[in-house]
Design a protein around this nucleic acid. Structure first.
Length: 584
RNA sequence: CGGGACGUAGCGCAGCCUGGUAGCGCACUUGCCUUGGGAGCAAGGGGUCGCCGGUUCAAGUCCGGCCGUCCCGACCA
């Protein structure tokens, strides 16, 4: 196929690769190019859009497959679940060393380097400066920000020989803020945006899916420092745009969605989601307007209609026996009522104390929203013993009536005319329970997860549910870290002010994995050319008599075409050489 | 950490229920052969059956403990 095209491709490709590898491989980020324009060009005939700039040609990196450590396999190790993991193993890109910890083989490293290079170019273009911070971080900095205690077990801690405490950095707000507080004194030095591409370690509860959720991984993390909120908003906007360019250049179909800020903190954030069914995150997007959010963040429109209707019609609460009926499904069926009029009562523990959260039986509680409402660092569902202790009944029979706990209710509860709920007694529920009359939550708020029936909180349009892989996350941090670590500057009036920060992450390996999730077929990886480990394969065919020994051609063909799917192929045979050189 | 499963050659697996000789495919080595889609023939190399202990004349197989890995739930790039 396409012999001529391949020929053309080869011609212009020779000056395309830049000088990674070979003797020049210690010079990353060389060969800056302007503009985008490589994007995703698929296979065949795409040579002109290739990365690598137009530096005077003749540089060509030729790698011999026979000598290259790229152990492609037909069979997949049995512990690989998702396609990207499987295909990376089969293409000889990565090998596991321990759970969530990998060796990157040459071909895999090349892909990471290409992803990094695109990131560097766009970060530099956006005015950020590259630095490099240590992976080992002293505990003092983390204690100063308060996260030594707040961050949890993902933070791998250890001691050195002198018994000093350290951790492996899972993110670097503390370190960068420490740097900046020492060096930045004046508003004249702002704004400042510093980034690094560095090895991170998070002791994940459950590493899985290969590079998608490893414990050790490469991340680009950037931190912006501004004099005020307006400046910070501008820095945020620049990063948001840079992220769009980065993912676009890698040929990814993605979406930026509003997100919860989690343990990083801050006022607002967007996640960059690569759309993929295998994604671990659920997202909603409006079919009419531009609203999109992580389901964890997605706002739910409160129901129309006022507070308790039917107060007069409903009798007083009655206790009914519901032996063995604990779940919403069991209780609603047993009582012959719709789940929506059941008042589901969940008991949470948090660093701000215990609370009962109420929601209509047709919905699920959104823990992130509860946590934010409480202003808590952590919350969790109370264990069985605590539930018994706090409600006087085993789980499944909690209810708000007479409960001596903080009551927080979702909006969906308010309009339940005469509901049913647990009686705080084993094997019993109450019916004809009226919110506002029989119990009074301290607040009605949006505390539930969006569901299929919900409408867009911005425009009322329909919502679409999809799944995504979070490859990037941008946060407006405000002054959380600058205040905790006293990073301040003097403004034009000589007044001391805290710097206003933002932080911006991209998972390098995860992005590569996401690209594979999105670009593969039954045979293997269909690389976007901008991050393909190789752009052209050259296969000698039938040249034995010319003194050039080749493999049986089916092998390299299949290897390059299936496992690796190198975008372009050039076959070298006596015939093709004669044709092109004009000799006979 | 809770729930489920699995550890036998580099990889994928069988053997275990019913204890007695370590087996298959791929990969690897050598020779021949082959050159436009993961070839063919022949001959080879490679395993303390995850670890420790127990039962037994005898343990890959039965029992106990430990370790590791993967999958399902709470975190996040």
């Amino acid at each position: 196929m396409r012999r001529q095209r391949a020929g053309r491709g080869q011609g212009s490709r020779r000056r395309s690769r830049g000088r990674q590898g070979g003797r020049a491989d210690l010079r990353p980020g060389r060969g800056r190019e302007e503009g985008e324009g490589e994007g995703h060009r698929g296979r065949g005939g795409a040579a002109r859009g290739a990365p690598g700039g137009q530096r005077n040609g003749e540089e060509r990196e030729l790698i011999r497959y026979s000598q290259y450590l790229m152990p492609t396999t037909k069979e997949t190790p049995s512990d690989a679940e998702v396609v990207s993991h499987r295909l990376m193993l089969r293409a000889g890109m990565i090998r596991k060393v321990a759970s969530g910890i990998y060796n990157y083989l040459p071909a895999g490293l090349r892909v990471l380097r290409k992803v990094e290079r695109i990131i560097r170019e766009e970060m530099d273009r956006a005015g950020a400066q590259e630095v490099l911070m240590p992976t080992v971080v002293p505990s003092e900095l983390w204690k100063e920000s308060g996260r030594w205690d707040a961050y949890g077990k993902e933070l791998l801690r250890f001691r050195d020989r002198a018994d000093r405490e350290f951790c492996l950095g899972p993110t670097h707000e503390e370190v960068i803020t420490d740097l900046v507080r020492r060096e930045v004194r004046s508003y004249r030095q702002l704004p400042l945006n510093l980034y690094q591409i560095q090895d991170k370690f998070r002791d994940e509860i459950r590493p899985r899916f290969g590079l998608m959720r490893g414990r050790e991984f490469f991340m680009k993390d950037a931190y912006s420092f501004d004099a005020d909120e307006e400046g910070a908003a501008e820095s945020y906007r620049k990063m948001y745009e840079a992220y769009c360019r980065i993912f676009r250049r890698m040929g990814l179909s993605f979406r930026a969605v509003e997100a919860d800020t989690g343990s990083i903190g801050g006022s607002s954030s967007h996640e960059f989601m690569v759309i993929a069914d295998s994604g671990e995150d659920a997202i909603v997007s409006c079919e009419a307007c531009s609203y999109a959010a992580n389901t964890e963040k997605a706002e739910c429109v409160p129901p129309a209609g006022a507070s308790p209707v039917g107060e007069k019609e409903a009798g007083l609460p009655r206790k009914v026996a519901t032996p063995g009926k604990r779940t919403i499904a069991e209780v609603s069926e047993f009582l012959g009522i719709d789940p929506s009029v059941l008042i589901k009562t969940l008991v949470f523990e948090s660093d701000k104390g215990d609370a009962a959260v109420l929601v209509s039986g047709r919905y699920e509680v959104n823990e992130a929203k509860v946590k934010n409402l409480l202003g808590a660092d952590w919350i969790r569902l109370a264990p069985e013993e605590r539930i018994l202790e706090l409600t006087g009944a085993p789980s499944g029979y909690a209810g708000p009536v007479g409960l001596k706990l903080r009551l927080l209710a979702d909006h969906s509860v308010r309009t339940i005319p005469a509901g049913a709920t647990g009686a705080n007694e084993k094997d019993a529920h109450l019916t004809d329970v009226v919110p506002g009359r029989d119990f009074s939550p301290e607040a009605y708020a949006d505390l539930r997860l969006v569901t299929e029936g919900d409408r867009c909180p911005r425009c009322g349009g329909g919502l679409r549910f999809s799944r995504g892989i979070e490859v990037g996350h941008v946060f407006r941090l405000g002054t959380k870290y600058s205040k905790a670590l006293s990073a301040s500057y003097l403004d034009a009036g000589g007044k001391e002010r805290p710097v206003v920060m933002g932080c911006y992450g991209i998972g390098v390996g995860r992005t590569a994995a996401a690209a594979i999730e999105q670009h593969n077929d039954a045979d293997g990886i269909v690389w976007p050319i901008s991050i393909a480990p190789f752009e052209v394969s050259v296969v000698p065919v039938n040249l034995k008599h010319e003194g050039i020994a080749g493999d049986f051609p089916g092998v390299p063909f299949a290897t390059f075409a299936r496992s690796l799917r190198i975008p372009l192929r050039r076959n070298l045979s006596l015939r093709s050489i004669r044709r092109e050189s004009g000799t006979a």
